[in-house]
Design a protein around this nucleic acid. Structure first.
Lengths: 205, 205
DNA sequence: GTCTATACACTGATAGAC
DNA sequence: GTCTATCAGTGTATAGAC
């Protein structure tokens, strides 16, 4: 297949960016890992490291989005889904020696103010996740601005949890944060239910 | 003063690590910014970039700790303190063009699994913050394991919020997360109060 | 289209003059 | 103790043979 080698490069870049970040990962390492000569690399990616990173972030974004939808589909409600999400990422973190899990976290920070193109890709990736969470919460009866803020907290909890778990080489932060978040969500869902009941009562009079 | 030049280097390193991260910041840039010749740099920091980074993280940790204590002292309770903390970091983020604010975030992730010495310093820095938050919550009547988990959520919210605000070039995530966290804390404080009242009632029988 | 050889700036680090 | 000159190595990127 013609694109198979290109995909190989993209996959290697993905893994290396995830575990080492953007600046610590060199072209030489990427081509060594993927077994592609340097000339071929610049044939596939004429825009060099920056273009490669943009495509990698886009692919990672698609991957994260797909995974989120899968978790949503496989679970019964927000609480269960958050638990599944955090425990799966936690497992990935510990199994990889805290090198993998949170494929964008480091890269997004590194490039936030130093590379506009990559930053734009990261922004869109996090916006996609946030939209998904927000829609999901509004569908549960939480009102828009609250759902938006809650989804910010969840993504921040995820990314911050990944940071803490990676630095402490422990899944404990992920577990603690997941527990706190599920309780927070339950409170919000109860509030939404109560306010819905109030509206129903008012309508029935 | 003999140490003044050394401190100059340390301060430049601090700022550059904060805004660009570890790997994007070179020795040459640090010595140019601080106006110190390369030879002098290696005289002051015989262990090179790694040793410098360790000292920088330690200094940053002290700074964060001091700031936290200051916020605690200047505010009336956990809710107010969290609001003050997030809004101050948010201001710093926006005023610097989202380059400063969260002095350890990027560096901690970059070195979590690639440099044991720096990682150890980062770990200790976050542990200090967490201890401070936890003690503060237990003093408010929240029980130990809950206080520990809650402080994890807050630090994760902080760091994750910094990531989101930096990538979106907006303080909105910081504000949303602060709002959600304060509500969460209020819930916990109410629970603590209620459980305290229960205990008092049981004791009075 | 595929790959080798190379360009050239810059990295962290050092040796040795002052 | 302070600094200049320079090192070997690596970074990204390219030219040009096949």
């Amino acid at each position: 297949m013609a694109t198979s080698k290109r995909d190989e490069v993209l996959k290697s870049a993905w893994r290396l960016f995830e575990s080492q970040g953007y600046h610590a990962t060199g072209i030489n390492q990427i081509i060594t890992e993927s077994g592609v000569p340097k000339g071929s690399f610049y044939h596939y990616f004429p825009e060099g490291k920056e273009g490669l990173a943009c495509e990698a972030v886009s692919a990672i974004s698609d991957g994260m989005h797909a995974k989120l939808l899968k978790v949503f589909a496989a679970t019964d409600g927000p609480v269960e889904a958050i638990e599944a999400l955090f425990s799966e990422i936690g497992r990935r973190l510990s199994e990889s020696g805290y090198r993998e899990g949170g494929p964008l976290t480091t890269l997004a920070l590194e490039t936030a103010t130093t590379n506009e193109r990559i930053n734009a890709e990261c922004r869109s990736a996090y916006a996609t996740l946030q939209r998904e969470f927000t829609e999901w919460f509004t569908a549960e009866g939480i009102d828009d601005s609250e759902a938006l803020a809650l989804s910010s907290l969840i993504i921040a909890g995820l990314e911050g949890g990944i940071l803490l778990s990676r630095t402490h080489h422990s899944t404990e932060p992920m577990e603690q944060i997941a527990r706190q978040l599920t309780e927070q969500i339950e409170t919000r869902l109860n509030q939404a239910t109560i306010s819905r009941q109030c509206i129903q009562k008012q309508e029935s009079t």
